[in-house]
Design a protein around this nucleic acid. Sequence first.
DNA 1: ATGGTAGGTACCCTA
Length: 288
Amino acid sequence: MTSVDAADPLPAQPKPPGALRIATWNINSVRLRADLVGQLLDTAAPDLLCLQETKVPDGLFPLEPFRLRGYRWHALAGMKAYNGVAILSRLPLEGAAVHDHCGRQDCRHVAATIAGDGPAAGIEVHNLYVPSGGDVPDPAANEKFAHKLDFVGELTGWLPAQGDPGRRRVLVGDLNIAPLENDVWSHKQMLDVVSHTPVEVARLAAMQQSLEWVDAVRHFVPADRKLYSWWSYRARDWVVSDRGRRLDHVWVTPPLADRLAGATVLRPARGWQPKPSDHVPVWVDLTP
DNA sequence: ATGGTAGGTACCCTA
């Protein structure tokens, strides 16, 4: 790490030679922000890009900007108006699958395995958009919060049931939970705010423990440092108030932990004009 | 204690 900018704990770094770069970004409409996605691909050059809140049915997904830049493979799970996840890749993919949870077909989970004969072949990638959970942090009073807890609870059993527990896996996405005290601007004031309540944090911890997932971003930033990936649109000035939350995550299973070579939370992207997403891209580099 | 902005869609939902 070369930068000491207090406001930007994980600025973009050069990709180590031969590294695999996997990025995640809640794009909040991929059609509206196709140009910003192109800007990310041109500057960060991830090998895989996982998007959430694409808000587009698969047949209308704007694939051309990706194809033009060499992202020839994709796995899409989109629907009209809401949710939607996508994996775009310049490495070949196989076994692409859409997974439904909680008895709903609401386009929150797509997975695929890197194929070919390169060093990354066999790595399984899961791209998730966990339900936001509404405003009231009480599952009895708020069906959306109940759905969020059920969704994370179901995944906690589902992921370990998918074969070899020692497999190389990466889990990315908008998990809509900020687990650590310094993943939010004020731990005390956020304790009863959906995204940082103890019951959600406990659910996420159980999911993380189920496969010994390593938080690949916190791997590079000590727990006593503030780190955010989302800032509300409702703030008058997101830079001045800086009331962020770390909702977007990259996790890896233990066989990949000693391959972690770097991570970035692209804070400047929150100011990309004319229409920034309220989330910024997050990525990690894995050496072969 | 409240309301603030944004996107997609269709006059209201979700975040």
